[in-house]
């Protein structure tokens, strides 16, 4: 019951602070741009890269804004003296931002890539990616006191996220990098629109799922000790 209350609270907080309005505008912009691109391989690549780098990763950026706003308003301090547990607090953030990620990805894909998409796989993949990036962003926010501090701190973390992804274009057969969550996620997203054997999709999903569990436990540990 407390988790449902936390979900309600987070949805309301994110709505009132304009997170959904901002993302609706961004999604509309992507849809307009993608609709201008003629169908074909280039469009599929562009769509996959947009879905991977924005809706799937939005949790990384939004969680920073949310946690910083909660810190500034003193809400984090107050929640710590209510029965809401750290697990419920983190899960609620992850679920609400995953909902936004999945909704935005599905809408963008629906409006620009009508055929050949496995919608169930798209939903599960974006969900798994969103969980990872939200928790990754959550770890970055811990210890930050201001929004500026947070943005400054995100730079090395973002580089760490994007650099290995280039490896798959330069060394496509270097399989070991696929064990990294961001690379597995990118390959999975590319496969959603360009095609990928189901066994490979399943493997990347498993890798992401394992990373999600690891980073969730790590987030809880760091959150409890902070």
């Amino acid at each position: 019951m407390r988790l449902i209350a936390a979900l309600k609270s987070d949805l309301k907080f994110q709505f009132k602070h304009g997170f959904y309005t901002v993302y609706t505008l961004i999604a509309v912009l992507y849809i307009i741009i993608l609709q201008k691109i003629p169908g074909g391989l280039f469009k599929d690549y562009t769509l996959a890269l947009i879905v991977f780098s924005d809706p799937a990763m939005l949790g990384f950026f939004f969680i920073g804004g949310i946690v910083m706003l909660e810190k500034q308003q003193g809400i984090l301090d107050y929640l710590a003296v209510t029965p809401l547990s750290p697990q419920e607090y983190i899960t609620s953030k992850v679920v609400t931002l995953a909902l936004l990620s999945v909704s935005a990805s599905v809408v963008i894909a629906l409006m620009t890539h009508l055929s050949g998409v496995n919608w169930l796989l798209l939903t599960i993949s974006i969900l798994a990616l969103s969980v990872f990036f939200t928790l990754y962003g959550f770890m970055v926010t811990l210890g930050c006191r201001t929004i500026n501090q947070y943005f400054f701190k995100t730079v090395p973390f973002l580089l760490l996220t994007t650099m290995p992804c280039f490896a798959i274009f330069i060394f496509p057969h270097l399989w070991i990098v696929s064990l990294l969550p961001n690379v597995a996620g990118l390959k999975l997203t590319l496969g959603l629109f360009l095609g990928l054997p189901w066994q490979e999709s399943l493997l990347y999903l498993l890798i992401l799922g394992l990373w999600d569990i690891v980073i969730y436990k790590l987030s809880l540990k760091v959150h409890s000790s902070s």
């Binding site: 309600k8 309301k12 009132k16 308003q73 003193g74 809400i75 301090d77 209510t82 029965p83």
Partner: peptide
């Protein structure tokens, strides 16, 4: 606490309602 820690974008009643749901 000695400083107010409230959801600034929410109303007074919403502030109470949201937190109240965490209690038995």
């Amino acid at each position: 606490f000695d400083f107010p820690n409230l959801y600034l974008k929410l109303t007074a009643k919403e502030n109470l309602q949201l937190i109240a749901e965490y209690y038995q």
